[in-house]
């Protein structure tokens, strides 16, 4: 850390950046050092730096604002009561239950979110596969009719189809003979 005493060079003008650095150094150093030349003058003429210095110092003092200078006369009794409370909790296991109760809203929320996610995901996947559902539904009662309808569509019983098939089979047999 740069010591303030090192910075005491002969400067008459100081900019805000240099002043800001000095304000922070002054705030954090253990023992207040000599103020650099030009700093006091800069602070006197610059509202922004003066406010910053005031606010930082107030902020630092604020860290000690809640400190006590007078003892609490009832503190010992509070400690005793707290000790008894600890003992009771330890014997009844109330502490664990309290912890679960305290966490329960968050846990319930997280569990609900997971379940909601699963439900939404399931619904989306279900919508992507409508054909499978129809096929499953038709498997039981309407299956023979459905197969017949498919056969009709493919013209499996059509004479033309039969003729073409026979031609292909015969042609294949001749080709194999030729190759032999």
């Amino acid at each position: 850390m740069k010591r303030l005493s090192v910075k005491t060079e002969n400067k008459t003008k100081m900019n805000c950046n240099e002043a800001g650095t000095i304000i922070i150094d002054m705030l954090l150093q253990a023992k207040p050092g000599e103020l650099p030349v030009g700093f006091t003058e800069h602070i006197a003429n610059c509202d922004s730096c003066r406010n910053l210095a005031d606010n930082y110092h107030e902020g630092f003092n604020h860290l000690s604002a809640g400190r006590r200078s007078q003892p609490d006369p009832d503190f010992y009794n509070k400690v005793l009561a707290e000790m008894q409370d600890h003992d009771e909790k330890a014997t009844s296991g109330k502490g664990n239950i309290n912890r679960i109760i305290r966490l329960s809203p968050a846990l319930v929320s997280a569990a609900a979110a997971v379940l909601l996610g699963i439900w939404i995901g399931g619904s989306l996947l279900g919508n992507l596969q409508p054909a499978n559902d129809n096929a499953t539904a038709l498997q039981t009662s309407e299956r023979p009719e459905l197969l017949q309808a498919y056969a009709d569509d493919l013209h499996l019983n059509d004479e033309t189809t039969v003729t073409i098939e026979r031609f292909l089979i015969e042609n294949e047999t001749t080709e194999t003979h030729d190759s032999k």
Partner: peptide, 23 residues
């Protein structure tokens, strides 16, 4: 116990306050 707590309560409370920043 009472003397121990009374003697040291300020010191202990103030250390805790310095760290926690909440009375």
């Amino acid at each position: 116990g009472r003397q121990f707590v009374d003697d040291h309560q300020l010191k202990v409370y103030n250390v805790c306050y310095s760290f926690l920043q909440n009375e």
